[in-house]
């Protein structure tokens, strides 16, 4: 994964009514209610290389977010809410590379995420982390609409006291050759509640590179023994292992601090 930090960080906070605005990097338009489904809709167009931080602070419980990406960008999403229904739609054009780093701290969420890789060489690196306390359902659809497109999707969740379900489907139609479609899903389930991962690859083409992994379980006993053998207590070892699991791969300093605070709140 190649990471570049762009000079300008554009920040969008959804804590009150958002007005349309445009700058040289992004265009943001907000419709309070879309015509058909009575759901507010936020549209973001990325026109220049940029870092974009999207903060959802729980003021809105239903929203559709359309992100059209016309240029390389890093998108950081920090979502805090009690109860939320949300749909993200990413359209990645102009052979752009988009890195998404996302952290959810929610009680109950139904989230849909559709990625359309719409031009040759479009590339998404998606890293999602969550600490589940009640009920979280995620449904991903990754459409490889053009040749040589790349999707690397990582979902890491720690189930503290709830139930977490992830369904992820990658589609590569006929004649869309040279694509890479990877899904890496792991839930550390610290409860006896049922968690589920359903990874699907729908591939109608020979010349592709596709992998999927799904793992639900507790931390390895040997890892715990190793940490304990250095005098680290069970709770501190859990804290350390969760930090390693959840912080690994995340980039934004503010989000990292927030995750660290959440982990210390639950496991200390």
């Amino acid at each position: 994964m190649s990471l570049r930090k762009w000079l300008v960080m554009n920040k969008i906070v959804l804590d009150k009514e958002l007005k349309d605005y445009t700058n040289s990097d992004i265009e943001v338009s907000y419709q309070k209610q879309s015509d058909l489904l009575n759901i507010p809709c936020l549209s973001i167009k990325v026109n220049n290389k940029t870092d974009l931080l999207l903060e959802l602070n729980g003021y809105i419980d239903k929203i559709n977010i359309d992100i059209v990406i016309n240029c390389d960008c890093n998108i950081y999403i920090d979502c805090t809410s009690d109860d939320m229904k949300i749909k993200y739609h990413y359209s990645i054009n102009n052979s752009s590379k988009c890195n998404v780093y996302k952290y959810n701290q929610v009680n109950h969420i139904n989230e849909m995420c559709v990625v359309d890789l719409d031009s040759i060489g479009s590339d998404i690196e998606y890293i999602f982390k969550s600490i589940c306390t009640y009920k979280e359902n995620y449904d991903y659809v990754i459409n490889h609409n053009c040749q040589n497109t790349i999707s690397n999707i990582t979902n890491n969740g720690v189930n503290k006291s709830g139930a977490m379900n992830i369904q992820i489907s990658g589609y590569i139609p006929k004649n869309i050759i040279g694509c890479t479609c990877n899904q890496n899903n792991r839930i550390i389930n610290l409860t006896n509640n049922k968690c589920e991962i359903r990874p699907n690859l729908y591939i109608d083409c020979d010349d592709v590179n596709a992998n999927h992994s799904a793992l639900i379980g507790k931390f390895d006993d040997n890892e715990m023994f190793y940490l304990n053998s250095r005098g680290i207590s069970e709770i501190d070892a859990t804290n350390l292992l969760i930090k390693g699991f959840i912080l690994n791969g995340m980039e934004n300093e503010d989000i990292l601090k927030k995750i660290t605070k959440d982990i210390d709140k639950y496991w200390r």
């Binding site: 890892e223 190793y226 940490l227 304990n228 053998s229 250095r230 680290i232 207590s233 070892a237 390693g244």
Partner: peptide, 26 residues
């Protein structure tokens, strides 16, 4: 961990690799 805190240390034959946990933090 209680045994370790008494001052007993085990240098392991195959020390484990733990992803994401840095040596310094550990």
């Amino acid at each position: 961990d209680e045994r370790a805190r008494l001052g007993i240390f085990l240098g392991m034959q195959s020390p484990l690799e733990i992803e994401g946990v840095t040596n310094a933090d550990f």
